[in-house]
Structure formats: structure tokens, C-alpha cells
Simulated assay, not measured.
Amino acid sequence: MLRLKLAVAAVALLAGAAFASPTAPRNGAEYTTLKTPQPVQAQGKKVEVIEFFMYHCPACYALEPAMLEWVKKQGDNIVFRRIHLPLTGENDPEAHLFLTLEAMKLEESLHAKILSTWHVERRRLKSDADNLDWAVKNGIDKDKFLAVYNSFSIVTKLKNSGRVAGTYEVTSTPTLIVGGRYSTNPSMVDASNPGIPRQKLDQATLQVLDALVAQARK
């Protein structure tokens, strides 16, 4: 009888593991649904995908190559944008740099350089002075940079960035928001699919994104 019970339990466990899959994500497991859907910038059939990240975040850096490849593959199916989570609050220097470069339309072209500064050169940009020094060394006009960096609009956005993260229920990075409605991240995918090898976790996360984009489009 004991052997029979153990066999039944094993079959049930295997069945549950088979059902849990990045290609068929479950609400409350591989992803969650936001309590309050947020407005999106995408129009028509395009689906908005937001990556909440931080420059210093090792998991964000690890996801970056696969994420870029996924975005390129999606093409006109999505509108992709990033939002920097302000780890240290309304004066967070990383988020401040991100917002400044975004306003100057330089963030996309310099994103890889900033990540390399943090994760390859091991150089920490932890202050306004660090940010200014990095900007000048990477060819940005000092006066133009400071004018945007210290502008009322950027300072206001920086102060509100924590509230923005709160509306999306984001508390860690990387977190991915699909269609202003669905939220997922590698940690959720890993916890819900413990058999996935660590080196395949990023790809599994993108499989969840595929499913959520399709779901949002419906």
C-alpha cells in the first residue's frame, strides 16, 4: 500500500511538472496580472513590452544579449522600452543618468557602453560626478549634459520614478511588463520550473514573453 501511495504521488508530481511550462505560462506562477492595468504607448496591433532594469543589476546584464535578440526578432509586433528602477529613491544616480540620456535620445546608443562600464570595467557610477565624468569621456558635451541633467523635467521625472514603478508593482529587476497588464521575471520562471538549467533560464523567460505577447494581442 505504501508503495502504491508513493507511486501515485510520483505520477502526480510528474504531471504537475509537465503542466508547468514557459510555453504555457500560468497566472500566479510564471507571470502575474497587474491589479490595475496601465496605459500603453503602443498603437494598433503592436504590444508594449517594458523592461524595468538597473544598470548595476547582474541579472539584467545577463539577460541583455538574449533580450536584444528577442526584441529584434519581434520587429513591428511590439514596442519595447526600458524604465530604470530607482534603487536609492528620488536621487538615484543610475536612474538620473538613464533619464538624462533618454531625454537626449542617446540612451539606446549608449546602453551597451554603460553596461560594459559597470560589468566589464567594474567601474561604478554612483554619483552625479561619476555620471558627468562618464558622459564627457564618452563624447557628450558637458554643458548640454548638465543642462538636461539638472533640468526641471528630468528632476521631476526622477522624483516620480518610484511611483511609476509602484503602479507596475515592480520591486526587483529585471521585471518585464507586457501590454500594461502582465508581469514576469526570470525568478518567477525559475521558481515555477525548477528543472530548467540556469543557462537556459533567460530563454525560458523569453518563451513566457512570447506567450504573453500573444495573449495581450488577443
Rank of each mutant, 00 (worst) to 15 (best):
P93C: 03
A135I: 13
A204G: 01
E30V: 11
A18E: 11
Q199E: 15
N131R: 06
D130H: 01
Q74H: 04
A9C: 03
V8F: 11
A66C: 09
D128E: 04
T171H: 08
E51G: 01
R198Y: 14
S192L: 05
P39W: 05
K126V: 15
S172P: 04
V178Q: 06
I196D: 06
K35G: 07
V40Q: 08
D202T: 00
A12V: 14
V120Q: 15
S109D: 14
Q43F: 02
T156L: 04
T32A: 08
P186Y: 14
I154W: 03
G139D: 13
E121W: 00
R82F: 15
N185G: 04
Y31F: 09
N138A: 11
R181D: 08
L85F: 13
K137N: 09
E51M: 10
M67P: 00
Q38I: 15
E69Y: 00
H56C: 03
A10D: 05
L176V: 13
L132M: 14
T173R: 05
K126S: 15
G44L: 08
R3K: 07
L34G: 08
L63Y: 09
T33E: 14
Q215R: 05
P58F: 14
E90G: 00
P194F: 14
V136D: 01
W134M: 07
A214N: 05
R124L: 15
S187E: 15
P65A: 12
L212F: 07
R122V: 13
L6V: 02
Y61P: 01
N77A: 10
Q43V: 07
L99W: 14
T117I: 06
H84F: 09
A191R: 10
T167F: 15
E102G: 01
L2W: 07
G179Y: 10
S161N: 03
L212N: 01
V71I: 10
V11R: 01
T100M: 12
F80T: 09
D202R: 00
L110N: 03
L201I: 04
T156C: 02
M104V: 10
L68S: 08
K157D: 14
A24K: 09
E69H: 00
L110C: 11
N131K: 03
K142T: 01
D92F: 13
T36F: 15
C60W: 12
S109Y: 07
A103Y: 06
P86S: 13
I140Y: 08
V49A: 06
P194H: 13
D190K: 12
L4S: 11
R3F: 13
F152Y: 04
G166C: 13
L212D: 07
E107G: 00
L6T: 00
S151P: 03
L110Y: 11
M54W: 12
P22R: 06
G89S: 07
S192G: 02
T171Y: 05
L201R: 02
V8C: 04
P93F: 12
A204V: 00
D210C: 03
K73D: 11
S192W: 02
L176T: 05
